[in-house]
Design a protein around this nucleic acid. Structure first.
Lengths: 174, 174
DNA sequence: CATAAATTCCCATGCTATCCCATAGAGCAT
DNA sequence: ATGCTCTATGGGATAGCATGGGAATTTATG
């Protein structure tokens, strides 16, 4: 599980340290590496471990083999993802195209999103975070919208009724 | 598993280096080679290892023996695929018809698509990638359209329920 | 069978990415 | 307060990769 945000600096060789807590989350992966995708949705890199790639593989493999959407996704996702191996101190070197895509120079922000994480130019991310907080605050004003943000099951009440769920939570290191 | 895109140059003898990471993915194949198909879908070469050919053989073998579609596919696919052997440094030489079909001169792009990869004229591919990213980004704006891109099973929740699937992910080097 | 053409094999080279060591600072424990 | 450990970062050495060119072997053709 990837949580929290931290900033690191890319050096002259385009190397950046991946946060230690993220590396810990990847400990059981077959490769000592992360998979990185320069996302078509914006100037950032979407990253994760084995589960991250497999999710994309699965999504795409479920489409018919000659579906034009599938062909697009193959190129824009599978064709763009790269595996970046850690060096002995836990850094990866970002290829030039990735640096360019995300507009990275110097400081960059690592943003945890549970199943994956993002890498942004630190300044770009800071600006973006301000906007996002504003949007969400505005959304709270509309009850219907607000409900979508947390309208599902309440974990606390589920836990009261289920011993097996309690056991799961205690044992689980994500 | 073939991932990522990289550019290489075809020399005067029409030789190109196959990316080292792709060769690694083919390590267990019986031949030190790739299978290459000038695809009827466009000016590119579709390539892969043993699994790549077997998939096509199976697709076609599943059609009725006298089905006109089958006859067409036999010619356009099985009849067009060629096996190209690596030289000692990991290059293959592209036959003239393949060069012509894909419009290759000098730089060409290798695009990983999981089970197979494509070879394009570098410039043609760059233009195409721009278009694809635009299309997909636009698609994200429409929730109904976006759902097709990842509307299936959520790998994370599948993993929670299946120990064997967890084990598979840990062990697998693809 | 002979010649030309094309292809395969082998070696050489420059670049780039990877590895290894060294340093500094933060946090924790004694 | 002092020393230890872990994390982040910097720089130099090295091995692997991509690419070029020539020689040898095979294939097509008359």
């Amino acid at each position: 599980m990837f949580l929290s945000t931290s900033e690191h600096t890319a050096d002259a060789k385009n190397r950046v340290s991946v946060p230690a807590s993220y590396r810990e989350a990847l400990r059981d992966d077959p490769y000592d590496a992360i998979y990185v995708l320069p996302h078509f949705d914006g100037p950032y890199l979407e990253c994760g471990g084995e589960q991250f790639v497999q999710q994309y593989r699965m999504d795409i493999a479920n489409l018919p083999r000659y579906d034009p959407l599938r062909k697009d996704l193959e190129v824009a996702i599978l064709g763009s993802i790269r595996r970046l191996d850690f060096d002995s101190t836990g850094r990866v070197t970002l290829p030039k195209e990735f640096i360019t895509h995300a507009g990275i120079e110097g400081r960059c922000a690592f943003v945890g999103c549970d199943s994956h994480f993002q890498i942004w130019n630190a300044q770009t991310h800071a600006d973006r975070l301000g906007n996002i907080r504003g949007r969400l605050a505005a959304r709270l004003a509309d009850p219907a919208e607000a409900e979508r943000m947390g309208g599902g099951a309440d974990l606390a009440s589920l836990l009261r009724d289920s011993e097996s769920l309690q056991a799961l939570l205690k044992g689980e290191k994500l």
